[in-house]
């Protein structure tokens, strides 16, 4: 059925007409979002897609879009899809871009095959509809993938943002930790802190755990490692914000913060740090 398809021929012969019909269809579909995508861009994307499809269809394979001759089309759709994802289109809107080509193509097929057998026309329509469905679904897959990438990147940004290293005094850094300390965050905290110790040539780093709800053996281990690494960079650490119930818990857990100075409050830690540096606040 696909073998004898006239799709490639129609795409070639009516390129300009199809483009206009399709654009009209897209405008009518209500998923155009002119505020997000200009008419010029839409026209360019549509023309490129028709071209790519025409070239791929020439090979005669209209059923399997994973083959090499469809690579250009796939790449183009992937590009369009991730552009639209970042512009704020929904996956359905992007899939509709592809699916809305059905109507103009069916009309054209109908005209071309006028007088021929109905069976042949139905066969063509079936071929084209399944092909466009596959291409439409492909945009959705890519869309979801690029969304996930965006979310992952935002997640990383958030991690960075939520663990700022502050220089509270010349020679003194503070990192207020807030929230759940999973391994990924602890890694970022540790790297940021060590980097800032170098950048600011600090002698003392205060790690404040007031905002950490649970200090278990994993968090304890992360803290111990961070302190050890800071020491190697020549800086001494003070852990502050050790609330009474956390202190009791740490003791019963058996985690030993031997050799690490701890304070109940950030203010207490700061006073201690200033004293270390021979400074006093007047």
């Amino acid at each position: 059925m696909a073998k004898g398809s006239r799709l490639a021929e129609i795409l070639r012969n009516y390129e300009a007409d199809l483009l206009e019909d399709w654009l009209r269809e897209q405008r009518a579909s209500g998923t155009l979002r002119p505020e997000l995508l200009s008419e010029t861009e839409l026209r360019a994307q549509s023309r490129e897609f028709l071209n790519a499809m025409q070239q791929a269809a020439q090979g005669g394979n209209l059923t399997d879009i994973t083959t090499p001759e469809w690579k250009n089309t796939r790449d183009l759709l992937a590009r369009i899809s991730s552009i639209r994802a970042s512009l704020g289109f929904s996956p359905a809107e992007t899939a509709t871009f592809v699916m809305s080509l059905k109507q103009p193509l069916f009309t054209r097929l109908g005209k071309e095959m006028d007088g021929q057998n109905l069976e042949g026309l139905l066969g063509e329509i079936w071929t084209v509809t399944t092909l466009l469905d596959k291409l439409g679904l492909y945009t959705t897959e890519v869309f979801i993938e690029s969304r996930e990438q965006i979310i992952a990147r935002q997640h990383e940004d958030l991690i960075e943002l939520s663990t700022p290293v502050i220089q509270v005094w010349k020679g003194i850094l503070a990192v207020p930790l807030v929230g759940t300390l999973d391994s990924a965050r602890t890694q970022v905290v540790m790297e940021n802190l060590l980097q800032e110790i170098v950048n600011t040539a600090s002698d003392i780093a205060i790690i404040d755990i007031t905002g950490v709800p649970t200090v278990d053996t994993l968090v304890a281990q992360h803290l111990l490692k961070t302190v050890a690494a800071a020491r190697l960079m020549g800086a001494d650490c003070i852990i502050s914000g050790v609330r009474p119930q956390i202190a009791q818990t740490i003791v019963q857990l058996g985690a030993e913060f031997t050799g690490i100075r701890t304070k109940a409050t950030l203010a207490g830690a700061l006073a201690l740090a200033l004293r270390d540096l021979g400074l006093t606040i007047q």
Partner: peptide
Amino acid sequence: GLTNQTKLVTAVSELAR
């Protein structure tokens, strides 16, 4: 109470992990 809450939650963290 808050202290025993904290202890329980910490134990949960250990055992769940």
